[in-house]
Design a protein around this nucleic acid. Structure first.
Lengths: 116, 116
DNA sequence: TCACTATGAATGAATG
DNA sequence: CATTCATTCATAGTGA
């Protein structure tokens, strides 16, 4: 979020800018805008506040990366499998890790702690 | 501390979880666990209380970052004149484009948003 | 209630 | 693109 007193050096998008960016991402399907797209988007968003091309560039990169991040989004809820979800659930790209046997995984954690 | 009955929004690690995490950090040397490590750690720590993968992820990120931060300030205190600003890096790789016509670009952005 | 600290969470910016 | 780093926001806990 953007503090009122922005003494920061990094870009701080306004709510409108975020809204538009997300709209472009979700509804527009934009993932990796090219140079001219970035330029146009930047020009448009600058109507709502200071912004540069690199901000747009990074925003899409980060958004896409975190959208499908194996961390935080997929690592989390292990199986909320079938629960009356009529639609297509998010891609189960679960970082399929070894099923640890009830006897096997504890030692693995020990290894994690003390190095292997 | 963690309240027994938490209506909290954010993760509140139990003392055991913190202890184990710090053990992994210091003795195990774990700094940035990968996806499968995070999974295993999460599974193990869930024996001591509710926890998700992202909590583990963030815990290590923060712990490492604050270690660096501490070290940085320490170094800064000793020779603060030598410490460089974080922004002394090469300019971001920017798809720099020239110019857009002030009349023509807005409709194009609309197209970008809603598809063309 | 306010000030302050520790720390979980988030995200912009980079790097390789 | 994935991964990591730096910095900031947000909030629980605490003391006065």
């Amino acid at each position: 979020m953007c503090p009122a007193s922005n003494s920061s050096t990094r870009w701080c998008p306004t709510p409108e800018q975020v809204m538009i960016l997300e709209e472009m991402y979700t509804r527009g399907g934009i993932r990796t805008p090219n140079a001219s797209q970035i330029q146009q988007i930047t020009a448009y968003l600058s109507l709502y506040g200071k912004i540069e091309g690199k901000n747009v560039f990074y925003w899409f990169q980060n958004h896409k990366a975190r959208d499908r991040q194996k961390l935080r989004k997929l690592l989390n809820h292990h199986h909320h499998h079938l629960l009356s979800y009529p639609d297509s659930r998010p891609p189960p790209v679960l970082p399929q890790v070894s099923h640890y046997s009830s006897v096997g995984f504890l030692p693995q954690v020990i290894d994690l702690i003390y190095g292997k």
